[in-house]
Design a protein around this nucleic acid. Structure first.
Lengths: 364, 364
DNA sequence: CTGAAAGCGCTAACAA
DNA sequence: TTGTTAGCGCTTTCAG
């Protein structure tokens, strides 16, 4: 047992230490721990024994340097503070770690500047692949990754990039279910609070809503199409804006759950009730949605599916190009309505149509 | 402009490329980009120009290998899914990235096994420092980090480890304010839903509660001390357990906000009202607390303070030991009550004390 | 099947 | 001040 002259630090064992301890060459140690099949079982056993005894583990940096693979996966999200993303991150992390990858998280906060910084960080750290879960990606970023030959997977509705794969979320299905659900209950006047429209997905959700309304034979009022920011505050603000309108909708759909929770809050403050005064539908189905008061009817988009598809696609594209995984893949992600308690009959559905008066009365 | 014989990949420029482009040695390039002051300005200019023209950035892996610093900070949290942590992570990330560090996140989910795995991941990646924000740390883990001479900062109430610094959260202050607040309103029967008691911090909060109750001259009922798990579900379950008791408290304090939201939900389901039937106090003050219905009275613990203190302490301890930062530091973190709308007079405070009958009636 | 040796891209002595 | 050179710990030819 040697120790450095002064400090009480551990002997710092490396591959050489293991090699000498196991009486083999460092090459054999390397082969053994990398599970190269052509190693003599006897030597391998000696190596493993040495590894255990010395409590050795390879230096990731060195390995990365020589092999070119960092064993790092980038994960870019829009806002780590929105509960949907932690749920996604959590899934992503589990799968990645199980496969021997570490993950590097970047949160863009919807700011292009930050997004660029994130991308740069990923590039600098030489991630082996990136999942851009930010629902809307700038083309030039994809190019940057493509230039370094780094597999990218991102969320979109329609494919176009060559060297990348996409998760095609079918926003339409869920939103349509939502609109239909509302229509069946008797709602005709439905508002939609979108996410930041610079996000392609936010725009897509909004457009899906408009289309579905048309499909249901309902007209959409421009005043009831509000742009939010996918967070609690913006949901509240948007609803307050709606309440200032002379003409109220009877239901509101939101581009995500946080927005809906913000709406619930605005309604609470205005002493209006859900679903008696307004029906409400969210999007995402975060775990919290089950816990709002009342529990939120929402469109579920499984973050587990998203995470799983993302990691496995990335991993597939990282295989030494056998040509097969070359083509950019496309995975469908479904959405569907989860009915809870924020949707009900529109006010006075039974008693006729004199809502204006009542509304006035109720407004504080 | 050369390019590899077949693929359309970029020329892969490295420090040598920059050196030749700038007509200097690689050492000069290294010095320049590392801001070593003794570089001739003329050469430096040439280097920067080359860097810009070639769009060069250093290979992190190589740099880490030779310098021994990974520029990686570990951040271990208990549960990324609990909104408190994303808020913390977000702060942490911003500060770290601004200082040139990347962060590695590990989520323990309260499982010692996972916790160990996290620690191992950090060790393997050779993080330059670790913040263990999991509110309760196993000694042996700290030893592992200490053995590799990695600075650690963690949350605790009392210092003891040598080569590490702590964030001493003053749970007492906030909890005491909470109990006092309740007592002043007239509550005598207060329940407490703790976090998982294997977490030191959870136990500390519980003990603080018990002490504060004594201080307020109130007795604590064993039946009203329930162990939860710091998440939505466990909050709901705990409250349901309380509702099955023959004797009800009039208020409940929770070890964190998620628990409180779970409680609100249980109460909602039981058609009981907050604060009319039960007063409720959370802990953490996540952004969401402002948005619950009604908005949650809670004890604020600033995750911004936590994150800032953590990063700066870590960074300080990473300086080439000048002796000064040697001693393990201790930073105080305050807590304080934020009164919102889940606390009010106990039921029948005005009309005397015949609550049992009413309760029976109200129970569905 | 094994070992010797050549780097991966960079930093840090050491010389000039 | 600048350049030359020796590794950091590992993987991976290439002989044997």
């Amino acid at each position: 047992m040697k120790r450095s002259p002064k400090g009480g630090t551990a002997p710092k064992i490396d591959i050489r230490g293991v090699a000498s301890h196991a009486r083999v060459s460092i090459a054999t140690v390397s082969r053994t721990i990398n599970h190269v099949p052509t190693v003599d079982p006897v030597l391998a056993a000696r190596v493993w024994k040495a590894v255990a005894e010395l409590n050795y583990f390879p230096n990731t940096q060195a390995r990365a340097l020589v092999s070119g693979k960092s064993k790092l996966l980038g994960l870019i999200v829009s806002e780590i503070t929105n509960p949907f993303f932690p749920e996604l991150i959590s899934e992503f992390e589990q799968i990645a770690v199980a496969r021997g990858y570490e993950i590097l998280i970047g949160s863009t906060n919807y700011e292009p500047k930050t997004m660029e910084l994130c991308a740069r960080r990923m590039l600098e750290r030489k991630v082996d692949g990136v999942a851009i879960m930010t629902f809307g990606v700038e083309e030039f970023l994809l190019d940057r990754f493509a230039a370094d030959d780094i597999p990218v997977i991102f969320i979109d509705v329609a494919s176009k990039q060559p060297r990348s794969s996409i998760l095609a979320v079918d926003y339409r299905a869920g939103i349509n279910e939502g609109v239909q659900h509302l229509a069946v209950l008797g709602h005709r006047k439905i508002a939609f609070i979108s996410g930041p429209l610079k996000l392609r997905s936010a725009e897509t959700r909004k457009n899906a809503f408009i289309e579905c309304m048309r499909l249901a034979g309902l007209s959409v009022e421009q005043d009831w199409l509000i742009e939010g920011n996918h967070d609690l505050d913006s949901g509240r603000d948007a609803m307050q804006k709606i309440l200032e309108l002379p003409n109220w909708p009877t239901a509101v759909m939101c581009s995500n759950d946080m927005t809906a929770i913000g709406v619930q809050h605005a309604l609470f403050e205005a002493k209006l009730r859900v679903p008696d005064d307004f029906s409400l539908i969210g999007f995402d189905d975060v775990h919290l949605a089950e816990y709002t008061i009342p529990p939120l009817t929402t469109v579920r988009m499984s973050c587990k599916d998203l995470a799983q598809a993302a990691v496995s696609s990335l991993l597939a594209h990282m295989q030494p190009t056998e040509g097969r995984a070359e083509a950019h893949s496309k995975t469908r992600i479904q959405t569907r309505l989860i009915v809870r308690q924020t949707t009900g009959l529109p006010r006075h559905a039974l008693s006729g149509i004199v809502p204006r008066l009542h509304r006035k009365k109720r407004r504080r």
